[in-house]
């Protein structure tokens, strides 16, 4: 009996702490959203206003000045394409690493990850030249390939760890049941690890969607995705915080909604190994 009040107190403290952390994490997005509805003047005011007269003027101007749908479509095609391409390569690669390891498998995995340590700008010139020579500057195909490649190490690693959690006995049982490699993958391995695969794909989608370095450097207008549109608002005529916030909101809204809808799947996938 005496325990009960302390337990309730502990629960309250925990709840408050979680809300606080949640708020801190969410605050930048909230602030961006609020700023996007302010006038440029309100956006600059110090101390900042939490209460203001909301306006849609920023959104109007942006949609007037740029073709949002064009950029959004580029983002969908490049991020989606990169995700599909990445998964098509990463799943078989992780399968090979997890179930047919050689003496060098660990080294190869580490080497793959080490490529992520190279700053992108280090290979900017060669990649730019390659794209130019292939006539692929400002092309969505180039972005798809590059996004897929830069995400591949992480995707392979993630899927590899999910696969490692699946006992090899199950795959051998499938083999004994008459399933070849392809059937074992499609009927057993992929269904079992679909949570992990979904979260890997989603992560790749988000990373590609928000990628800006290569988008800015390799595209001008034809293939430019939303991240390039955001950047275009940050410099020419000085900083316009409110418009920048509005365009950023527009840029990340689709992916935010997608993440929201699939959060259950995402969390399940990211903690897959832990709860089993």
């Amino acid at each position: 009996m005496a325990k009960k009040p302390t337990r309730r107190l502990a629960r309250t403290v925990r709840a408050i702490a979680s809300w606080l952390v949640g708020l801190i994490v969410f605050f930048p997005i909230l602030w961006m959203l609020l700023t996007s509805f302010k006038t440029e003047l309100d956006a600059f005011s110090m101390p900042p206003h939490f209460v203001f007269a909301p306006t849609l003027e920023n959104y109007e101007q942006i949609l007037k000045r740029a073709n949002y749908l064009h950029y959004a479509w580029n983002s969908i095609v490049t991020a989606g394409g990169a995700t599909i391409l990445g998964m098509l390569v990463a799943v078989p690669a992780a399968f090979a690493f997890a179930y047919h390891p050689t003496l060098r498998t660990k080294n190869i995995l580490l080497w793959m990850l080490s490529t992520k340590m190279l700053p992108g700008v280090g290979v900017l010139v060669p990649i730019y030249l390659i794209c130019r020579d292939l006539n692929m500057l400002d092309s969505r195909t180039a972005l798809i390939v590059i996004f897929a490649l830069i995400n591949l190490p992480i995707m392979v690693w993630m899927i590899y760890t999910y696969f490692r959690d699946i006992p090899i006995d199950i795959l051998e049982a499938a083999r004994m049941d008459g399933a070849g490699t392809w059937k074992t993958m499609s009927r057993v391995l992929i269904p079992i690890s679909r949570g992990g695969l979904a979260s890997t794909a989603l992560l790749c989608l988000i990373l590609s969607w928000n990628e800006s370095f290569w988008s800015l450097n390799l595209t001008t207008s034809n293939a430019a995705p939303l991240s390039a549109l955001v950047a275009s608002f940050s410099s020419p005529e000085g900083l316009f915080w409110a418009k920048l916030s509005a365009v950023s909101t527009l840029a990340c809204a689709p992916i935010l909604v997608l993440g929201w809808l699939s959060q259950r799947q995402l969390v399940r996938g990211l903690t897959f190994g832990a709860v089993k």
Partner: peptide
């Protein structure tokens, strides 16, 4: 199999 290895 010793571990049964059922398809989960």
């Amino acid at each position: 199999f010793q571990s049964y290895a059922l398809y989960p």
